[in-house]
Design a protein around this nucleic acid. Structure first.
Lengths: 221, 221
DNA sequence: GCAAAAGTGTTTGGGATACACCCATGC
DNA sequence: GCATGGGTGTATCCCAAACACTTTTGC
């Protein structure tokens, strides 16, 4: 059997949380196929580059995002349905990256912008499926790891933390139970700082003890 | 930037449980690099084939295993460290397959055999890492899904079920607590059958309600 | 003083854990 | 009758869930 390589590509689902909305980084495709449509930033993998290095190059060039700004990144899944790319058989290795309030003005070559995941436009290829996969992974991950550190600013209030959980899992939580449970996990500690924000009592600011991904003992659910 | 494709390959971690030992399917490599060494069954992906179709072809040819005999299969991770293959940059999409007591005599072209994961030989490429990744995934998966159906025969005793869990997670469990907990999950039901096995009381045989992968409500831990 | 968000305790039910003996069979 | 693995119940503890009021601030 003769060896004909499928096209190998990489796509990134870059997420951030802005004002209680989860947003994903999309570009407008400059070229066919799907020219003008929204898509995830992605592109070809070059021999000698690992998929993650390729993604870094592509994000910087097409979307103006420096991967060093991402606070967490991990491989998601490799999508390879033969029909996913009308040009021929393409295999795409996908990654999820989490960021904290990236500069809203991005200077990539393909009109990058952040779009709320709750209001996605129609997307090129199977990129809608890829985003759905990333969101499912994220929803699980925040229950058994400290992944939320990557979506929040370094210092945050417990209300911000709870809002972030509620946004991602899509339901409300009891304030007292959430605080007791989360504080008992020893993932965060109070700082001497507080946050004034209007005509009400200032909120204590907290910080994650560890700013890299670690599993936690008891799951949150 | 010119597009030079890395080599795209697929590798499978095929696991089965025989006599309270978890075994993985290995082949002896016929060709360089690593000729004569143990390795996972794997090979090149051909354009027009999805990675899972390629894996099916390769398993049948090199290891004599029909994927239809696998009771569960899922993609694991895509390994792409540049240095993993001495011939050049290779990207490998990996899968985990679970089987129930496959024929111990396999007729593939590369001397396939099952080897207990507790006593692995030295392996080609980064295949040791891939197996470690698969085992970690399996250990997690049996706690929050019914994946164990794919490693046990269709009818099994509660003792067999508990032994299987103990083998995979690597510690012993309390018999009464295990049975109460597992039966409360509504994953299995008793059959009218029982199993006679020597000079002692026969054991009731159970069966999984659903023989496809589903998540369960409460995790087992 | 009033509006707005921060912060805090108690009760109750259910699942997790720990633990030991009787049952059915073959020989 | 005895050896072997199959099968069962109870007490305790801790965590999850439900639930409402006081505190601190800006205006």
């Amino acid at each position: 059997m003769e060896y004909q390589a499928p096209i190998l590509t990489v796509d990134g689902v870059i997420l951030q949380l802005v004002q209680q909305r989860l947003q994903v980084l999309l570009i407008r495709r400059a070229k066919s196929p799907f020219a003008g449509m929204y898509a995830l930033p992605g592109g070809y993998i070059v021999a000698g580059e690992t998929t993650s290095v390729s993604l870094a190059r592509i994000l910087a060039h097409k979307a103006g995002v420096d991967v060093a700004q991402l606070r967490m990144i991990e491989q998601l899944y490799t999508f390879d349905t033969v029909a996913r790319d009308p040009r021929g058989h393409a295999v795409s290795v996908t990654y999820m990256g989490l960021a904290t309030a990236l500069n809203p003005v991005l200077h990539g070559t393909e009109h990058p912008c952040f779009v709320p995941v709750a209001a996605l436009p129609e997307l090129a290829f199977d990129h809608g499926d890829i985003i759905a996969y990333a969101l499912a992974r994220l929803r699980n991950k925040i229950n058994y790891t400290n992944a939320m550190y990557a979506l929040l600013p370094e210092h945050f209030t417990l209300t911000q933390l709870q809002d972030a959980y509620e946004t991602i899992i899509g339901r409300t939580l009891d304030k007292r139970n959430f605080r007791r449970k989360f504080l008992s996990l020893d993932l965060i500690h109070a700082t001497p700082l507080s946050h004034r924000d209007g005509a009400h009592r200032p909120a204590r600011l907290y910080r994650f003890n560890v700013q890299t991904l670690v599993d936690i003992a008891r799951s949150l659910d």
